[in-house]
Amino acid sequence: MWDRLLVDCRIATFEGGGLGIVENGAIGIADGKIVRVGKRTELAGFRAREVVALGGAWVTPGLIDCHTHLVFGGTRADEHAMRRAGASYEEIAAAGGGIASTVKRTAAASDEQLLGQSRRRLRALMRGGCTTIEVKSGYGLDTDSELRLLRLAAQLGEGEAVSVVPTLLALHALPPDQRDRRAHYVSEIVDKLIPAAAEQGIATSVDAFCEGMAFTPEEVERLFKAAAHHGLPVRLHAEQLSNQRGAELAARYRALSADHLEHLDQTGAKAMAAAGTVAVLLPGAFYALQEQRKPPVDLLRKHQVPMAVATDCNPGTSPLLSPTLAINMACTLFGLTPEEAIAGMTINAARALGLAHNIGSIAAGKQADLCVWEVESLAELGYWIGLPGPARRIYNGADS
């Protein structure tokens, strides 16, 4: 006997390359897994301890935020004011702001304080429909501090109805005291942090920021080689402010994703397509930084590069806590269709995390992470500006 049978619903399974719509559908759930999906008439003979009639609502996979920097201390609201006054990203960083200021505030906060602040952000994303949330480190900038943030990211999900996926953002920013010792700093990260994270098993992947104001392709490649040696997949912040050929580098190492990509060119897009690397689009950062150059969505479509969408929740350049607003922004700012944007926070986000075998679509054998939306059309998820969230959020088979 199944635990639950959801009936009287329209289902967007995101199986088979499209919406995968099932009208008058039903979903059988047992032991936190989906056991059957189909027409209500096809499942009529099966018994369940609980039958839930959804009144014709739409059901999608639970939303997946595949790129966040959720664990940090304090805010950077003062920098928001500076930016409104005309200061650039680079100017703010040069004045001691940016990532370095968050590093200081994060170091000064206790574990309890960081968990408390981060949990509020986590729960906001959950209310918006997220059932899986990636959380990067990156505000420690040394081995012990980065490992601390990875442990806190894992703790963040404990006792919450959400899956947290910790990512080691190993090369995020150069510490001010290491500006004249770049090679030494990169060696410390490559030789100490990567082996320690791998040994402790607390990172699902390794990420870096490849940019003129951050780390060079050569430095990132050293990191990627170390990650590969220790069996850790890689991801990359690439082509956000300039074209550093980061997407091509990511593709050479079969990266799960390359993220931002405003300055991506055709060579990079082709390389990503050949490698199966997902393009993660981050409209919150584009909006907050008031960028003018959009990611080349038509180029990504042309080469059939899967496009994911994420909040990029972080204190400086994307203080975004609404996954539905990210979907809307992907449509209105970047020109994605509602179907593409929703796929971007379900099946393609799962691909960007290497988890498409278990989440991201509604299919037998996958985890029963679902969102129930009381809307007439799925296009409303991309239409409403900041839709509060689903009417019902189901994680691991249970309402949450």
Results as ranks from 00 to 15, higher is better:
residue 6 L to V: 01
residue 6 L to D: 00
residue 8 D to V: 07
residue 15 E to I: 14
residue 17 G to S: 11
residue 22 V to L: 15
residue 23 E to V: 09
residue 30 A to Y: 01
residue 35 V to L: 15
residue 51 V to I: 13
residue 52 V to L: 14
residue 55 G to F: 04
residue 56 G to C: 04
residue 67 H to W: 05
residue 68 T to G: 07
residue 79 E to A: 10
residue 81 A to P: 00
residue 93 A to I: 11
residue 102 T to G: 09
residue 107 A to Y: 12
residue 110 S to W: 04
residue 114 L to V: 03
residue 118 S to Q: 02
residue 129 G to S: 10
residue 131 T to M: 15
residue 136 K to Q: 08
residue 136 K to D: 08
residue 143 T to V: 15
residue 159 G to F: 11
residue 168 L to T: 00
residue 171 L to M: 10
residue 187 S to F: 10
residue 195 P to D: 03
residue 203 A to Q: 01
residue 213 M to H: 08
residue 217 P to A: 13
residue 218 E to A: 15
residue 219 E to M: 11
residue 224 F to D: 00
residue 236 L to A: 07
residue 237 H to W: 10
residue 261 L to Q: 01
residue 267 T to Q: 15
residue 271 A to L: 08
residue 273 A to P: 03
residue 277 T to M: 13
residue 281 L to K: 02
residue 291 E to A: 14
residue 296 P to Q: 07
residue 298 D to W: 06
residue 302 K to F: 12
residue 311 T to N: 09
residue 312 D to V: 06
residue 314 N to Q: 06
residue 319 P to C: 12
residue 320 L to F: 04
residue 322 S to H: 02
residue 324 T to E: 11
residue 327 I to M: 15
residue 328 N to C: 13
residue 329 M to T: 00
residue 337 T to M: 13
residue 343 A to R: 04
residue 345 M to S: 12
residue 353 L to M: 08
residue 366 K to Y: 03
residue 367 Q to C: 13
residue 369 D to E: 09
residue 369 D to W: 07
residue 375 V to I: 12
residue 379 A to Y: 01
residue 388 P to T: 01
residue 397 G to N: 03
